[in-house]
Design a protein around this nucleic acid. Structure first.
Lengths: 348, 348
DNA sequence: TTGAAAGCGGTACCAG
DNA sequence: CTGGTACCGCTTTCAA
């Protein structure tokens, strides 16, 4: 029951391997009866052309390399599902590497894959890469002729296709929503201030405050390390001692939840006299009490989009050099119970 | 800057390709000076042997196919991280497919990969496959010489290496813990009664009740469909009308959390007069109020173990047919705040 | 309508 | 110490 090759089939019918190859590819050069018997036999024996032989010949693998910082992050898992779905749809396989936020792992694995294993990369940078802004490995890949599409955590110094969320605008909207529902002293907590996405959210926050005519209070701005999550509550607590505060925008789900808890401990009522909005996609938001109002990022769509862009580029690669594109995926403000409802307010 | 081949190097130094090949493989047949200059040049030009050519020649790809039902499930994401880690460590790549609980997708994708793309499979069955118990595709793969290691959702009618959690024993222990902390009317809620893991947990529950000398009340046993999760609370509610109940064992995180909420709504105090234990690995358990006591399954270790078993088999495959093994990964009861502490109780 | 042969990028055996 | 060549499995051009 071992795998059957074209050669075996040729032997079986005492014809040449080229005849078999043509017959299987339904070539007009081969007589119908020959084609038929060969195809029938091939199907019966479950013949499948050898992947490596094909890839070698065609110089393309129909495989894409996906580099993701961390699969336990719900957002990235969503993106991954989107990638897998679209790739599958288009007949591509995906080889995955989890960088674990490590620059070295990211580089090593991309080098390891750039030996003809894959046709192109889909990557979201590790935190380390983002902080150091070491992007040579990306640029070299691209120069070598391996296209890259970056998603979410993109590098501005790399000229490639990109897919990002509208973090800046989203942050502006969160401020606006809080202002509209009566908040004035809006704190901002970031766990990813090193990343561009984090910076964009911060900038959006500042811009939003400006637009809404709210003074920015430095004491209400807090940057914490993501891996300190066990101490989130302890670290966030002091925020509540620095003068008036009536709401929080948090850049991650866990910090948003932590902020809610502390506010409640301090005696605030959410959303009556305290509001929280988190940039978050996970399950926690739907199960916290109260349920967290979030900026939702549509990870799956981001994944699908990125995969589609890469595949389009791969299949168009007929010599022409297409300009790179950055696509922005709109986020949605999902109103749950940690903010007052603007609609209800306006009714009164 | 295009990819360089052995042929290019041969041309550059005006030697034969076999000389280059040997030089790069540090063969004793080649003079030191030749080796040195060739190796230096190769490094400078970042030469990497073509993956497909090697795979074709060696008849092995050092790639494993991973088939997972759903990446948004935290447990599977953990397993996946473990697999990726171990595979990477051993120099293997992974091609991933998400079956989305669909039998057809599982079959299609395994067939698509069984063309020399991968050396072996790591699979957790889709729900559909488990329910229908259609396992021919697995058995055919194995007969074709492609080894499979199944994890968590395994099929008993497939003779292959397997890695599972000790669900049966774990369930017995949950009953024991509840009994020890004063519970008598223990309900059992399953969202995965179609799966073997679900059945094992149920059997363990029954066995535990027997061991502890507690009567089983049919009214306290509830099977629900996992995708009804939006209606969990509604579906679980009636359980509280069927006579005395003082605790719940739930087979999934979400149903455990739902049960807690309902108990609280019904006026119970957790853990004072109501206890809940969930089979769960996710983040919700650590963020619910009270925090959920869980049976934790060490997904990452399961992934590492499965990957290691597969790779061992692949590398040992020197003709010898090794007997298949099933490894059991011990679960842990992680006591949080939805159960009374046995230690504290015994102190008094 | 069929077949021979080259080539994709390597490795390895054998000859020199 | 170096080179020629067959082969891994398949496609494709060219000749018959």
């Amino acid at each position: 029951m071992k795998k059957i090759t074209i050669k075996d089939i040729a032997a079986k019918f005492d014809v040449s391997i080229s005849t078999v190859s043509k017959a299987l590819n339904d070539s007009y050069e081969i007589s119908d009866k020959t084609k038929e018997k060969i195809q029938k036999y091939a199907k019966k024996k479950k013949y499948k052309p050898n992947f490596n032989a094909l890839s070698l010949k065609n110089r393309r693998t129909k495989t894409i390399g996906v580099v993701i910082p961390n699969m336990l992050n719900y957002f990235f898992a969503q993106v991954f599902q989107g990638v897998e779905k679209k790739a599958n749809e288009k007949g591509y396989k995906i080889i995955t590497c989890i960088s674990n936020e490590s620059f070295d792992k990211e580089v090593e694995t991309m080098e390891m894959l750039s030996n003809g294993s894959i046709d192109g990369f889909l990557v979201s940078m590790s935190k380390e890469t983002g902080m150091k802004n070491c992007v040579n490995h990306f640029n070299e890949m691209i120069a070598d002729g391996t296209p890259i599409v970056m998603f979410d955590r993109v590098a501005k110094d790399v000229d490639c296709d990109k897919v990002v969320a509208d973090d800046y605008e989203a942050a502006i909207k969160t401020v606006k929503h809080l202002k509209n529902t009566g908040c004035k002293n809006i704190a901002f907590i970031s766990t990813i201030s090193d990343l561009i996405v984090g910076k964009d959210r911060y900038k959006g926050y500042l811009k939003g405050m400006e637009i809404e005519g709210l003074p920015v209070n430095e004491n209400l701005i807090l940057n914490i390390q993501e891996n300190d999550y066990k101490k989130y509550e302890e670290i966030i607590s002091p925020l509540f001692e620095n003068g008036p505060i009536d709401s929080v925008i948090a850049s991650s789900e866990q910090s948003a939840i932590a902020a809610m808890k502390i506010a409640q401990l301090k005696g605030y009522k959410i959303p009556e006299n305290f509001s929280v909005i988190g940039f978050a996609n996970g399950l926690l938001s739907r199960h916290s009490s109260p349920k967290l109002t979030t900026v939702s990022q549509h990870g799956e769509i981001m994944g699908e989009t990125a995969a589609e862009m890469l595949i389009d580029r791969l299949e168009n690669a007929e010599g022409q050099i297409l300009p790179t594109v950055t696509k922005v995926i709109k986020t949605d403000l999902v109103e749950r119970n940690s903010t007052k409802s603007y609609l209800e307010l306006t009714k009164n």
